[in-house]
Amino acid sequence: MSTPAAPSLLDRLSTNLLRILPQHLLAAGMHRLARAETPWVKRLLIEKISRRYGVDMGEAANPDLDAYPSFNAFFTRELKEDARPLADNAILSPADGKVSQIGAIDGENLLQAKGHSFDLTALLGGDKQAAHLFENGLFATVYLSPKDYHRVHIPYGGTLTSMVFVPGDLFSVSEATTQLVPNLFARNERVICHFDTELGPMAVILVGAIFVGSMETVWHGEVRAARGQPTKWTYQGEQQAVFAAGDEIGRFNMGSTVIVLLPAGAASWSTDVTAGSSVRMGQALATPLIGR
């Protein structure tokens, strides 16, 4: 397990600045800019990000940068069909990225960073009944950087039961910020997707961040709701979409974090994946324990 670098002075200054800046106004501005179809604007953004982060367009279904009508279309690009093989009989990584933390939930406490934990009920938007299902369960947190593939896939086959939009802050979710902002993942805006699986309940949580213009799911589109209290959608009957392991369920319209929750005893984490590990969508994170 790698030890994260201590936050720099610049990290501390930028985090403190975000405490006072209009986070949602900045995100709204990025939302418009990322969707601008003015040729020189979208080309400038695409080229700068591609060069700075070394984006591998050889994996893209369409490697032609000029073919994307906007920066957001490039950022959420589809990959070739064989770019991300799926591990067999496994809990899959939901996205490309870096594992921030992975392990067991201590009662209702999840590890955010060394010396920082956050509350399960708070993460789930105050839903105590949902939190009870994951007490002493399992969790994995995957951070997506700007260079990563930004579509999110279901880690294990399941049936959609509900979705919750939780309004909140839009702090950065970088490695440094997780060390500087207490309860970061329970404070930031997020979309909580609940599924029923043969292992029991599973939650896949898309956590927003500064400059994340929006989050989308394949069954709803862009998720928007009134600010203030969480908004919940419950799915029944024909509304309950069924997903096979590795199916796409959503995407970030800029970088952010995905958290996966499983009930106690549902799986055994892979010894090859620890905090600090780089992962790709479809890679095995854990072995499911069927008939537990």
Rank of each mutant, 00 (worst) to 15 (best):
P39E: 12
P39V: 06
P39M: 10
P39R: 09
P39N: 09
P39I: 07
W40Q: 12
W40E: 03
V41I: 10
V41L: 13
V41S: 05
V41N: 04
K42C: 05
K42A: 07
K42V: 03
R43H: 15
L44C: 14
L45M: 15
L45S: 09
I46E: 08
I46K: 06
I46W: 04
I46M: 10
I46H: 07
I46L: 06
I46P: 06
E47Y: 10
K48C: 04
K48T: 12
I49D: 04
I49P: 02
S50I: 02
S50N: 14
S50Y: 11
S50L: 07
R51P: 01
R51D: 05
R51M: 06
R51S: 09
R51I: 00
R52E: 10
R52H: 14
G54Y: 01
G54A: 02
V55N: 02
V55F: 01
V55W: 01
D56R: 01
D56A: 04
D56E: 10
D56Y: 02
D56N: 05
M57S: 13
M57D: 13
M57A: 13
M57R: 15
G58L: 11
G58T: 11
G58K: 11
E59T: 11
E59G: 11
A60E: 04
A60L: 03
A61R: 15
A61F: 09
A61H: 12
N62D: 15
N62L: 03
N62G: 07
N62V: 13
N62M: 14
D64C: 02
D64H: 03
D64V: 00
L65K: 02
D66G: 14
D66I: 01
A67P: 07
A67R: 05
A67C: 02
A67I: 00
A67E: 05
Y68S: 05
Y68P: 00
Y68G: 04
P69A: 08
S70H: 02
S70F: 03
S70W: 03
F71I: 10
N72M: 12
N72G: 08
A73Y: 07
F74H: 01
F74G: 02
F74V: 08
F74E: 06
F74D: 04
F74M: 04
F75E: 04
F75M: 07
T76P: 05
T76Y: 01
T76C: 13
R77V: 03
R77N: 10
R77Y: 08
R77A: 08
R77C: 05
R77I: 05
R77F: 06
E78S: 15
L79P: 00
L79S: 13
L79G: 08
L79E: 14
K80W: 12
K80N: 11
K80P: 11
E81L: 12
E81T: 15
D82R: 08
D82P: 03
D82Q: 11
D82Y: 12
D82L: 13
